[in-house]
Design a protein around this nucleic acid. Structure first.
Length: 364
DNA sequence: AAAATTTGACCTAC
DNA sequence: GTAGGTCAAATTTT
């Protein structure tokens, strides 16, 4: 990809610009600047990131023309978004998915759609833990050259709902507070109403000792994300507060948008990575309330609840190997937790044309 | 008791 | 032969 460098550089510049603006906004937040100035900054930040996404989209189309085709009529199973990145090379993906039903041991038979999510978590927060799905750990492996072991998770409803989504979580060598998550397969366990409660909080273990995330979500999570399959950005919030279990409480008390947590976009091929500062996230959250961020007038579900972001417990971004899809997901964890569930997802659909934050139909 | 996690063994791709 | 991914029994947690 020769033109890769150009767009990559442009993208980096754009994101860097956005980051800078975010910092400025942070400064404004700390001071007593006017709401207008903040709003302006916020708009600029959003604009900057919109451009960045545009660039990503275009680059993806160029690099993988075959992927730019509309995928709106993909089989449900394939588009069932999910925590896992629904991005990817669909043709291959489908095939692979079918194979998945046959054997699970074959390495390459597994889905091609692999997204990478990096979640930086500090404050003991287990970033990767909550991505809106219910996972069960089925293995752990020491990886050559890696300081930390890699954990393998599969959908809790694998057998129950024949959901073959899996994910791998591995802590970054460089920064232990960063987790890299690779999703494979799509969730097909969506059936519950979108009104379902949010997933339960992480089993706590805020300790990084526990190596990776601890998936503890409820079944409904799957579909929650699936609903966002064609969504570029997906914000969810839950105003529900339930302190049934102590973990939830923990979440509530510990998790406060880890100021250092960052979201990194990782494009496998280009090695381009970008980080969103918490500020940006805050901005995004903030934008939920602003006209700038127009929730999709979804046709089938009222997916976008009222954004009353109080906190969020997960944040991750996924980018498929093929440049196609990206999903940023930040959710709250907990089914019962109070929280805001923030989810970004960049769907392949987006690649196609305009960058539609405010484009009806873009969000589903 | 049921569900989830741990962990060593096994299998497959490279 | 080695590394990575999955299985499944044992163990732990809920």
């Amino acid at each position: 990809m020769e033109n890769g460098l150009n767009w990559e550089q442009t993208l980096i510049n754009e994101l860097a610009h956005g980051m800078e603006l975010a910092k400025q906004l942070r400064a404004h937040l700390n001071s007593t600047s006017s709401a207008e100035s903040r709003e302006i900054l916020l708009q600029r930040i959003l604009s900057s990131y919109e451009k960045a996404f545009m660039i990503l989209k275009w680059s993806g189309s160029i690099g993988h023309p075959q992927l730019s085709a509309p995928i709106t009529n993909l089989p449900e199973s394939s588009i069932s978004g999910d925590g896992s990145p629904q991005s990817e090379e669909f043709d291959r993906g489908f095939k692979d998915q079918q194979d998945q039903n046959d054997v699970s041991k074959k390495r390459k038979v597994l889905p091609t759609w692999t997204g990478q999510v990096r979640v930086c978590s500090e404050n003991g927060f287990e970033g990767p833990t909550e991505d809106g799905y219910s996972w069960r750990k089925y293995g752990q492996k020491d990886i050559l050259g890696a300081k930390y072991p890699r954990s393998y998770y599969r959908c809790t409803y694998r057998s129950l709902r024949n959901c073959w989504a899996t994910k791998q979580v591995q802590r970054s060598d460089d920064d232990p507070t960063i987790f890299e998550i690779i999703y494979r397969g799509r969730h097909s366990c969506n059936e519950t109403p979108h009104t379902a409660p949010l997933p339960p909080p992480p089993s706590s273990s805020s300790s990084l000792d526990k190596q990776e995330s601890k998936p503890k979500n409820n079944p409904n999570n799957c579909q929650q994300q699936q609903q966002s399959q064609n969504m570029f950005f997906n914000f969810r919030t839950s105003s529900r507060v339930d302190t049934d279990d102590s973990d939830n409480k923990d979440m509530a008390s510990h998790f406060e948008f880890p100021s250092t947590s960052s979201l990194v976009w990782n494009n496998g091929e280009n090695n381009a990575s970008f980080a969103f500062s918490t500020l940006v996230r805050d901005s995004i959250l903030e934008s939920c309330r602003s006209p700038l961020f127009v929730p999709p007038a979804t046709s089938e579900t009222s997916y976008f609840p009222v954004p009353q972001c109080q906190m969020m417990n997960g944040f991750g971004m996924v980018h498929s190997e093929s440049d196609l899809t990206d999903i940023i997901s930040c959710n709250t964890s907990a089914t019962n937790s109070p929280i805001v569930d923030l989810d970004f997802s960049i769907d392949p659909v987006v690649q196609d044309s305009h960058f539609p934050f405010d484009n009806p139909g873009f969000f589903n």
